[in-house]
Design a protein around this nucleic acid. Structure first.
Length: 467
RNA sequence: GCGGCUAUAGCAUAAUGGUUAGUGCACUUGGUUGUGGUCCAAGCUAUGAGGGUUCGAUUCCCUCUAGCCGCCCCA
């Protein structure tokens, strides 16, 4: 840091990030064209230290509950063969059609940044012969996903999902418990969330239903918007969650998917609802709820912010459902499965809106101020002693003036500051300053840790509650 | 991918077709020698990028980029 801003800040202005583009790389307009500052890619962002408190809360809550429900963590690669997603998500879906980061890698393979992780989880289930483990195999993951979508609040091109997947069980109770887990996460986070739930049956009964649905809307074609006409063509199920007034009205007379479920599907769904009901989970049966990916079957559900719902963009914080056909599509043995994923930035955003912002790390209780080389040498060691004793100490080794260090201590709001200067080093002492009163006492440096620990006792005692 | 709105420093903002683009917060340094919270002073940092109109543009126009909102879609 000896050079500091003088030299650093204004200089770099002139230097973009390309120093050595060996290839001819047209020196003209870099597609962004901003030569002044390095610019973030659209839809990508830095999660800053100030936000990490919330992120930690979310990550920790997810991890704790995953463990409590005995899900096992799996880390899946971010890059997969493109074909994995093309085959599973559905040809007609936007995710596949226009949102995938898909490219050819140096070995000339078509690869894609994962737009979601369920397909990868299913792939891993097959690859590692997990069907030979006690079923169901319960996996959870947390990591970044990528979709080349138009960015908006709560929607990014790189976004984080935490997901829970259960392979190998078809019992309705499994679906229900997944809903319970999701809701528990929100509960622990202090968010008021409700679940919307529906069943879209098997591929077969859905097919019959869709024929009927399309036929119905064909007769009312004139009243449909362009968007809805397109939906009718491309992905008729989607018309169910159309926001068009006219369409909504038509929907009231439209065939309902629930009436088209075969007996088994119906029974399954009823059981799921019973279990959910039993758990006192705020849910609503939404016969128009459908999901965007093709692999879903039977139960589908979505976690929606309950407070001022509808008003907030991106109030769906997560969603999931059953995907009994997925493993088979990928070449595995027919395996029932069910899972859900949570959108982490949306959850973080909801926490922010509620003013929930836990500290990123425990607040330091002591500040160590040093003057002179000898003090620094002793101080570095002393710092370790404190750390080992479990007392969080802060320092400003980057500053020399005592004044600046006390300012830093003050900012951190520590109750005690240790001051070690030339004189103290010679005497084998150290100053303990009470920041509130300004009172100082000179003590034997060897007893510093024990003394500080004692002084801190009352402070520490009324802390643990909120840590 | 479509439509709308926006773009001044780290953040929040003011102003203007014409000398040094103002303020607040933050940050750095100082108000004598090793003592914080208040106060004072100084310093640092900005018109997103490129082009056009103009004698002159941060201001007007265009394009790009980015953000936000709505749609599409989704987490």
């Amino acid at each position: 840091m000896p050079f500091r801003k003088k030299s650093a800040a204004p200089k770099k202005v002139s230097v973009p990030e390309k120093e050595s583009a060996p290839v001819a790389a047209a020196p003209t307009e870099e597609e962004g064209g901003n030569s002044k500052n390095p610019e973030l890619l659209r839809g990508f962002r830095d999660i800053m230290p100030e936000e990490q408190g919330r992120w930690n809360l979310v990550r920790d809550t997810v991890r704790k509950l995953a463990e409590a429900y005995s899900f096992d963590r799996i880390d899946l690669p971010i890059l997969e063969r493109a074909d994995l997603f093309l085959r599973t998500l559905g040809k007609g879906t936007d995710v596949v059609e226009k949102e995938m980061y898909i490219f050819t890698d140096p070995s000339n393979r078509s690869v894609a940044l994962r737009p979601e992780a369920t397909a990868s989880a299913a792939r891993a289930y097959i690859n590692h012969g997990m069907l030979d483990r006690p079923q169901p195999v319960k996996l959870w993951y947390l990591g970044p996903m990528f979709r080349h979508d138009r960015p908006q609040a709560g929607r990014y091109r790189q976004f984080y999902q935490a997901g829970f997947e259960s392979f190998g069980a078809e019992e309705p109770i499994v679906d229900a418990q997944l809903v319970v887990i999701g809701m528990q996460i929100f509960k622990d986070l202090g968010l008021d969330v409700k679940v919307e739930i529906n069943s879209i049956g098997t591929a077969e009964c859905r097919k019959a239903y869709l024929a009927e649905l399309v036929a119905y809307f064909r007769t009312h074609r004139a009243k449909l918007s362009e968007d809805d006409k397109r939906r009718l063509q491309k992905n008729p199920l989607r018309i169910l969650d159309s926001k068009e007034e006219a369409t909504r009205e038509l929907l009231e007379g439209a065939p309902q998917i629930l009436n088209w479920l075969d007996e088994k599907s119906k029974e399954h769904f009823m059981k799921v609802l019973e279990f959910v009901e039993e758990m006192d989970i705020p849910y609503s049966l939404n016969p128009y709820l459908v999901r965007g990916l093709d692999y879903y079957t039977h139960t589908v559900f979505e976690f929606v912010l309950a407070e001022d719902q509808g008003e907030v963009a991106q109030s769906a914080l997560g969603g999931g459902g059953r995907y009994d056909g997925l493993v088979e599509v990928l070449g595995g043995r027919p395996t029932p499965a069910c899972g859900f994923a949570l959108g982490l930035e949306r959850i973080v955003r909801a926490l922010e809106a509620k003013g929930i912002n836990p500290p990123e790390h425990p607040a330091p209780l002591v500040f160590f101020a040093q003057l002179g080389d000898a003090a620094r040498r002793v101080g570095l060691k002393l710092y370790e002693e404190f750390r080992r004793s479990g007392i969080p100490v802060a320092e400003a080794f980057g500053k020399n003036a005592l004044k600046a260090q006390l300012e830093a201590a003050n900012r951190l709001n520590v109750p005690l500051t240790l001051i070690l200067g030339q004189k103290e080093v010679l005497d084998g002492t150290i100053i303990i300053r009470d920041m509130e009163s300004g009172a100082q006492e000179i003590v034997d440096v060897k007893k510093a840790v024990a003394l500080v620990a004692r002084k801190l006792q009352p402070v520490v005692l009324d802390k643990p509650a909120d840590l």
